[in-house]
Amino acid sequence: MSQTETVHDRIEQARTELTPTQIAVGLALAASLGFVLMFLQDPMVHDAMHTFRHGAGITCH
């Protein structure tokens, strides 16, 4: 890969490489993952991840 590339080139490259459908599917997946993360606030799931959250330095209680 050429070393004179810029971040802008990469964005353009992604635009030509990916079809609009692929981009839409990717964004939908990311949004749904975000939604699931919110859903994980549910006490049962939330508590089950308890030690992991402490270990990762992300705590909610």
């Binding site: 006490p43 799931v45 939330h46 508590d47 089950a48 991840m49 308890h50 030690t51 992991f52 959250r53």
Partner: peptide, 14 residues
């Protein structure tokens, strides 16, 4: 809300 074992398994999986 959940047992010790569940916490262990889910935490490792997480």
């Amino acid at each position: 809300a959940v047992s010790e074992t569940t916490t262990a398994v889910v935490s490792v999986g997480s």
